[in-house]
Structures are given as structure tokens and as C-alpha cells.
Design a protein around this nucleic acid. Sequence first.
RNA 1: GCGCGCUUAGCUCAGCGGUAGAGCAACUCGUUUACACCGAGUGGGCCGGGGGUUCAACUCCCUCAGCGCGCACCA
Length: 720
Amino acid sequence: MEPRYDPAVEKKIYDSWEQSGYFDPDVCVEKGVTASDAEPFCVVLPPPNVTGVLHIGHAYEDTLQDIVVRHARMRGMRTLWIPGTDHAAIATQAKVEKEILKVEKKSRRDLGREEFLRRVNEFAQVSHDTIVQQIKRLGASLDWTREAYTLDEKRNLGVRTAFKKMYDLGLIYRASRVVNWDPKGQTVISDDEVQHEERTTKLYTFRYDKNFPIPVATTRLETKFGDTAVAVHPDDKRYAEYVGKTYHADFCGVPLTIRVIADPTVEKDFGTGALGVTPAHSIVDWEIAQRHDLAIPVSIINLYGKMINVPKPFEGETTATARAMVADELKKRNLIEKEEDVKQNVSIAERTGAIIEPLPALQWFVDVDKQFKQNNGHTTTLKALMREAVESGGTTIVPERFEKIYFHWIDNLRDWCISRQIWFGHRIPVWYRERNGVQETHVDIDPPKDDGWEQDPDTLDTWFSSGLWPFSTLGWPDKTKDLEIYFPNSFMDPGYEILQLWVARMILMSGVIMEDVPFRKVLIHGIVRDSKGEKFSKSKGNGIDPLLLADKYGADALRMTLVIGAAPGNDVKFDEQRVKGYRNFSTKIWNIARFIQMNKPEGFADDVDAGAAKHIAAREEIKELAALKAEVTKHIDDFEFHLAAEKLYHYVWHTLADKIIEQEKKTLAGGTDAEKSESYALLEHLLLGSLTMLHPFMPFITEEIYQIFRPGKMLMVEQW
RNA sequence: GCGCGCUUAGCUCAGCGGUAGAGCAACUCGUUUACACCGAGUGGGCCGGGGGUUCAACUCCCUCAGCGCGCACCA
């Protein structure tokens, strides 16, 4: 054995695993390492976005899965782990758009849809290749023969099939309503893609004009051109006499017709207790307007955040400028009664950082409250279905506290807006044409055969295709053998930041389409942060390249650092110092192996030294190892990888090396031949046993050493 | 506002009803069949504050504080 373990061999080891074909469970069955009737175990990789390179968070996520997968494989299960990448519609398009604008000073419209998509696909391909190499470098035992992409043809067929099915069930509909408009990305986004940021802003208390009886408080003076009502609480005695009446007001030169209505959602104690209702530019106001049958509102803000349908000088101004102008005008008219600073949560688009502009638009939605009938005869709603999947125990979420967050999210869920005004993604499978003045709509998997149809220009929310991932990767909508064997998946390991965006959508989609849960267990993990507890981000420049660390200390050391870093669901604070510590552990393991190998008695061979093996069977050290195995197995089954890894670390270093080897040194030096053989047999047994248990955590070094002791074998598929 | 976490040794974190644990850091010794990417050992903790349940609480319950997160409101 070399005096030192060199992480450079890790690439070679990965290649040998890949060449063996054992990542593919069919090959395992074929070659007899897995029984043909073995219980299936399937995990689908959360597909990394093709927007760049792998970061340390991926390394963490992939390590956790690889532990589960390798453990299952070693226990003889028919184990499949499917790789793939995510086209990540908005994220990827935005990235390429930005790059093209920077380098060529061109917008996507300058290039045209076809050319632009060619560029995005090119970028995605390069990004994909990098990512795959990176995943392999970390040792993930994925079956690359089954690799998928959320935007490949197979998955596109799945998306179209799912859309059609949900449309036919009445779960997908098209409607005009106030949506979250991202003025920067020029697209609608769903509620879950909106984030909130607290800011201080001015709250104005004003009157539309001198004769209007009720003062109203608002932070958005510029939208008041679009007001059609003032809402007060039904129990509010101050305004009871005005309820039901309609007033004509002159608001900064614009004639408004304002009805006073009573609605229980209005808070008496906020502002003046009276709310100016702007149906076109507030989701809440839109809903109030619906309840009170207010007239169809006029938009006063366009898609670029500029004022429209208002007189000069307001027309064409940005909302911010218009707000200041309105404030000036009202002051001139002496209509501002109060001006105060308030804290307000501003809605931000998570991808572009733009402030959301609520405005009315015609979009496609998934109805989460609609009753529909499943093939199995049950009548349900999507909300109920998502709730039941977890309540019934069909899917278990670990740690349990995330179940609470999940239910809380369902309780507050609104219809899911799935159409996006971007080009990169799955085109909506709907075609329109006008015939004799009548608008016709065709919703199907394939385009209509006859003439005159035009496909909807929009694409689908990336999470629509991601939601199908647990079964689209298995070949659905075809009735494949994989689907039969491996669905529902056994395990899924996403981060908590996509519990709602992704996990919930998979449960939803699987519930409608497959009428089953997508997976049995979900282990939610935390975020990897830097040593100060800050999130890694490009703008902060605190990123760490997991690949550099793997090359420097070995992928195994990196994996151990991440695993022992924290309990499930908690964030991991990452410090390079710790990786060093586990590199030292690798060295320790290496030296244990070297020491044992150096002491192999002349002529010792496993088949002829059955006597030595028999002798050691009764020894305490063997029992101790067996007890450890039971503990480690239990911890892995309970997803307590940090405990399993820590115990193994402690055993190997402080029991096997510090105690047992030290104790055996005397025998190895001065014992009889029989005693030496026994001593060696014991140490070898303990070493190989430790390597076996360590393998899911530190696959490379364990494989390397194992093959030195057992040439021709492969630890990856040895018995646990 | 509703909900969910976290607070344990200098640092990073485990443990979660039975006399406080690990890694790193610090200190003291040590180099004998591997390993200084060593070994043996030492110091260091009112387990965030207060109250309760219990024979027994870091562990369960209540409450307060600080930090973080989710959802809603934000007119």
C-alpha cells in the first residue's frame, strides 16, 4: 500500500463503479448481486438547475441521498437512483438574457424566439455537462443510463399529457384576474415565487375631494385613480350612514365614482378604518370587488409599471413618480390629512428582485378547491388530496415539524397560476383560432390537424414539470416496467426552501395523475451556510467550490463534514477546518489498513485459515462490532446520519485504532504463529466490517482499501 | 397577527427523563510495529431567564427574552 491515501484515485474508483454497471439495478439482478425478487428501492435526484455549477448545498443533498441509496443497495434491495437536471425556466432564461444584454446589448426580442431558445439550450447543455461531472466527483451512485431532463421530449410529452388530463377534469382553467406581475421579468409568477421584504413607507390619509365624506389611508396614492369603492367594516358605526351610497368625486382632475361598501375583511383599527378599493391593482381589492359586484375595473398601470388611462401629466410616468405627483397635487388641494411612516412588506419577485405589480391579466390556473372525481371513484379537491397524502401516512415528512408547515401552507393556498410569459419552457398545449367571429380553443396533447390554429405563446411554470418528476423520470406516460416496479418512490430529499414550491406540487401532481403518493418518505434538509452562519451567495462572494475541497481533502472528507455537521432539517455551518479533520480521519483509516496489511502472517489465506476465523468468533471485539452495526443501521433507518457517522468515526479511531490495535501489537510481535493468525484474522475482520459500514458515508477510500484486501470484489455491492 | 424552530464547553454542534458529550481550539506529558494528517492526559459548562410536573428535568409543560424561518396582513 502507498504510504498515503491520494484523493486523486477517487476519479478512477468512480469510473470502475460506472463500468461495473452496478448503478443500474437491472445489471445487479442480471449479474446476481441482487435477487430478482428483491424489494425495490427508488430515489429520484432533485434535479439541479442548469443555470450554473454545483454548490456546496448540492454536495450536501447528494451526500445524504447517496448514503441512503448505498445502504439500500448493500442490504440487497433492488436500488435505483435516477439523475437529472432541471431547465428551471425563469431562472435560466433570465440568466441567459442578462448575459446577452451585457455582451451583445440585445434583448431576447431582438434575437427572436427561435434564436433566443437556441442560445438558452446551448447554455443549458454546457451547464448540464459541468454539473454531471461534478455530481460524479462527489461519488453519487446514480444510474446514468436513466438520466432525465425536465425539458426533454419524454418529459414534454408528460407535461402535455398531464395538462390535458387536468384540463379535462376541470382542474385547469383560464381566467382574467389580478395576478403577481413581475415588471422586470415581464411575466406573471405564482404566489409561492413572491417573497416579502420589510420596508418603511409613507402612509397618507387623504380625501378624494372636498365633498367626499370619508378619509382614506393608503401607501399607494397613484393607484387611487383606479378606485371604484371605499370599504368599511360592517360594524363600524363611524361610517354606517354612508354604506350603500355612491359618490362622485374629482380626484386630481379625474372623475371617480365611488361606492361605499361594508366588508368584514376591513380592519377598523388600521388607518381610518376605511379602505380605498382598487380592484385592478390589488389582489385583495379584486376579491372585495368580486364579492360586491363592482364594475369591471380599468387598469391604470401597464406591464412596464407606467401609468396609463390617466390624464396628463400623470400618464406615462412610473408609479413612483406618479405617487409623488399625486401627493403634491393633493397637498395643493389641501386634501392630505396625515402623513406617517409605516412598516410595510413589499412583494418581491424571487428571481429578478423586482417589486411585484399586481394587475389584471388573462392566465391559466390550477384550481385547488374544485371538486373532481378520480378513477378510483373518490370525489376530492386538490387541497384535500394534498392534505390526505400526508395525514394518512402515505407520505411521511421528516422531521415532523415540516408537516406542520406543509399543512399551514395548504390552508392558505390559492389557485396556482401556471402560465408564464417567457419563452424557455414547456409551451402550453393549447391552440386558438377565430372562426366566423367565434373564438375557438383546442386543448390536447397534440396540435389540431386543421388550419388556422395558433398555439398559446406562453410557457408553463417550471414547477409544473418538476411536479411530475417522481414518475416522469420512470417513463410515464408510457406504462413502463420501471414505473411498475419503482413507483411510488421510496425516498426524496429536498431542502426546506422548496417544501411548498416542489414537494407539495409533486404530491399534488402525483395525486391527480397517478392517484397515489409520489414517495413514501421525505427527508427535508437544511441549508449549508458559511462559518459565520451567512447564506452562500454569489453577490457576497463567500461561495465555496465543493470540487476544490474534494480535490484537496478527498470527497469522503467533504461528505463526512457535511453529514456530521447537523441533525436532519437543521442548517449546516461549514468551516474548512472541519474538512481537514475528516481528511485526517481518512489518513487514519488508511494507516490502520496499512498496519494490518503489514502484519499479515506469511502464507495467511482466508480459505485455509478458517481455524483462526473460528477462534475469533467468540471474542468480545466481534460482539462489539456487531453491536455497533445494529446501532448504525438503526440510525440510518431513522435518517440520523450524523449519529451513525459520528459513532463510526469514534469507533474506528478510538476503539479499533487506539485500543484494539494497540492491544494486538504484543501478540503480533511475539505470539505463536497460531496466535498471530488469530490476531490478524480479528483485525482484518474488524477493518472490513468497519469499511462496510463506512462505505455509504466515505465510499471512495473504503472501496479502495477493501479491494486491496479482497481483490476482484467490489464493496459497493457487498452485503451490509 | 397566526404558526414553526433555535438558544448546551472559547468556536461548530450532538444528546432530549436517570450523576453533562464530540470535533476543533487551549494546556501538560509522550515518539514503543501504522499514523504529527500521532498517542496518553488536563482544564473548561447554574445545558438562555423564571415557574411548574416528577423520586429524578438539558430532556416534559407553562412563561419571558434574544435570534431565525414559514404564512397572512400590510389599505
